[in-house]
Computed example of a mutant assay.
Amino acid sequence: MVWLGPLLLLPNLFLASHVGAAVDLTLLADLRLVEPRRFFLTCVSGEAGPGRGADAWAPPLLLEKDDRIVRTPRPAQPPHLVRNGSRRITLRGFSQPSDLVGVFSCVGGAGRTRVLYVHNSPGAHLLPDKVTHTVNKGDTAVLAALVHKEKQTDVIWKSNGSYFYTLDWHEAQDGRFLLQLPNVQPPSSGIYSATYLEASPLGSAFFRLIVRGCGAGRWGPDCTKECPGCLHGGVCHDLDGECVCPPGFTGTRCEQACREGRFGQSCQEQCPGTSGCRGLTFCLPDPYGCSCGSGWRGHQCQEACTPGHFGADCRLQCQCQNGGTCDRFSGCVCPSGWHGMHCEKSALSDRGDGDASAKMQVTDQGHPGGASASQGAPAC
């Protein structure tokens, strides 16, 4: 592992803009399809236009590839866009695997929020432990490049396309190369990569690091305001204090679970195909980043949660009481007469309890920051 001091980087070009309330914008990457021509990216907006009808006068979505950092040869045939109104757009028709590697973005919403996705080659020499790492200001960020195809050469780390650090190949620990960044600050955010020396950049592990502008549990211009305590891996936005909920959860504090296969701020969207959200990566506005859908994990989001775990990337652990059972999509399912996050509340104890936000619900419509141990370790 390498330990680096505080970072001073060039101005970061890869932070999402954010104006006002959280924008309902999702970038979906379909990892189920290994053939480049069948692979697709879809940008979905839940934002309604100001005029009559859902799409009236809504600004059009943009879906594009950003070659400023991860440069790949231009595809023989440019992929084509398919638009369904102003609230959904799909990019498909890639000609070869190298066309897919790199940074893609979806732009939408009144404030033109930009949602980013970094695609790694499944056959790369090195793979990221997580595509997105979201941390708080002042935290220690640890990026782990997993050895997929071993080469006995040094590993070059880059930040936003520029040389950053070199690790000797002997420094791999348990099949991974670690980059540890203490006391990270917002300018440290950006695209990081780990590549074997003299190997093709297409074989790199690409990461995105998001550093919230405040410490854990805080938000606001001076970071003096307290976050609401986002549940189920939701992330507190450092500018407005709102919870950006993981795919599959909704509510002011992300307290409600959508029904299986649903996503969006109001659970209004449904995963395509008969496999539900299996094999899909979901990217949401910063500071959330990207993850598998609720109930799934792994590099291609095709592995079901192990028993006792649930939520996006299966990061959450059930601690069900009073006969409750763990559902990998929503958490504890309580027997009659009990409710709450862990089925810890009975009908009798609930009398006079006005805190409806702590009750677990499943609704059709309906990570980093201060949750309990069973909810993972959110950045706020």
Rank of each mutant, 00 (worst) to 15 (best):
P6S: 14
L9N: 05
F14M: 04
V19F: 04
V23R: 05
D24G: 08
D24R: 10
D30A: 10
D30E: 14
V34F: 06
S45F: 09
A56P: 05
A56D: 11
P60W: 08
L62A: 09
I69Y: 05
G93Y: 00
P97H: 01
L100I: 12
C106E: 00
C106P: 09
G111W: 03
L116D: 02
H119L: 15
A144H: 02
A145S: 11
L146M: 14
E150W: 06
T153C: 00
I156Q: 07
G175L: 05
P182Q: 11
Q185G: 01
P187I: 01
L197T: 12
G215Y: 03
A216H: 09
T224L: 07
L231Y: 10
H232K: 13
V235W: 05
C236L: 04
D238K: 07
P247T: 11
F249M: 06
R253Q: 14
E255H: 13
A257P: 09
Q265I: 00
Q270T: 15
S275N: 10
G276C: 06
R278S: 13
L280V: 09
F282H: 07
L284V: 07
P287T: 05
G298E: 13
Q300P: 01
T306N: 10
F310R: 01
C314D: 01
G340F: 10
D350A: 14
R351Q: 15
D353L: 13
D364I: 11
P368D: 12
